[in-house]
Computed example of a mutant assay.
Amino acid sequence: MPKVHLFDRSGTLVGPVETNKVVKSDEAWRAQLSPDQFRVLRCQGTERPFCGVLLDNKKSGVYCCAGCRLPLFSSQSKFNSGTGWPSFFAPIAPGNVVEHADHSHGMTRIEIVCGRCDGHLGHVFPDGPPPTRLRYCLNSESLDFVDDSELTSLADPLVESAQQ
Results as ranks from 00 to 15, higher is better:
1 M>G: 15
1 M>T: 15
1 M>R: 10
2 P>D: 13
5 H>Q: 09
5 H>S: 13
6 L>D: 01
9 R>W: 05
9 R>Y: 07
18 E>W: 02
21 K>W: 13
22 V>K: 04
22 V>F: 01
26 D>R: 08
26 D>G: 08
26 D>V: 13
26 D>Q: 13
29 W>H: 11
29 W>T: 05
29 W>R: 12
29 W>M: 12
29 W>V: 09
29 W>E: 10
30 R>V: 07
32 Q>V: 04
33 L>W: 04
34 S>D: 10
36 D>R: 14
40 V>H: 07
42 R>M: 10
43 C>N: 15
43 C>M: 15
46 T>N: 14
46 T>R: 14
47 E>T: 00
47 E>L: 11
47 E>N: 11
47 E>K: 09
47 E>W: 03
48 R>N: 08
51 C>K: 14
53 V>W: 02
53 V>Q: 11
54 L>K: 05
58 K>F: 10
60 S>L: 07
60 S>M: 04
61 G>T: 06
63 Y>K: 00
64 C>F: 02
65 C>I: 11
67 G>W: 00
68 C>W: 11
70 L>W: 00
70 L>D: 00
70 L>F: 02
71 P>L: 01
71 P>N: 02
72 L>S: 00
73 F>C: 08
73 F>I: 03
77 S>A: 12
78 K>I: 09
78 K>D: 00
79 F>Q: 07
79 F>V: 07
80 N>P: 06
80 N>G: 07
80 N>C: 09
81 S>Q: 10
82 G>E: 07
82 G>Y: 03
83 T>G: 08
83 T>W: 13
83 T>R: 06
85 W>M: 02
86 P>G: 01
88 F>L: 02
90 A>Q: 07
91 P>M: 09
93 A>H: 11
95 G>V: 15
96 N>P: 01
97 V>D: 05
97 V>F: 10
98 V>R: 12
98 V>Q: 13
100 H>Q: 12
101 A>F: 05
102 D>Q: 10
103 H>T: 10
104 S>G: 13
104 S>I: 04
117 C>H: 02
119 G>E: 11
120 H>V: 03
121 L>F: 03
122 G>P: 04
122 G>I: 02
126 P>M: 11
127 D>A: 04
130 P>G: 05
131 P>Q: 09
132 T>M: 09
132 T>P: 04
132 T>A: 09
133 R>P: 00
133 R>K: 14
133 R>N: 14
133 R>S: 15
134 L>W: 00
134 L>V: 08
135 R>E: 10
135 R>Q: 07
136 Y>H: 13
137 C>V: 11
138 L>I: 03
138 L>M: 15
139 N>P: 10
139 N>K: 05
139 N>T: 05
140 S>M: 00
141 E>M: 11
143 L>R: 00
146 V>I: 14
147 D>H: 15
148 D>L: 07
151 L>I: 15
151 L>W: 04
152 T>K: 12
159 V>M: 05
160 E>G: 03
160 E>Y: 12
164 Q>F: 03
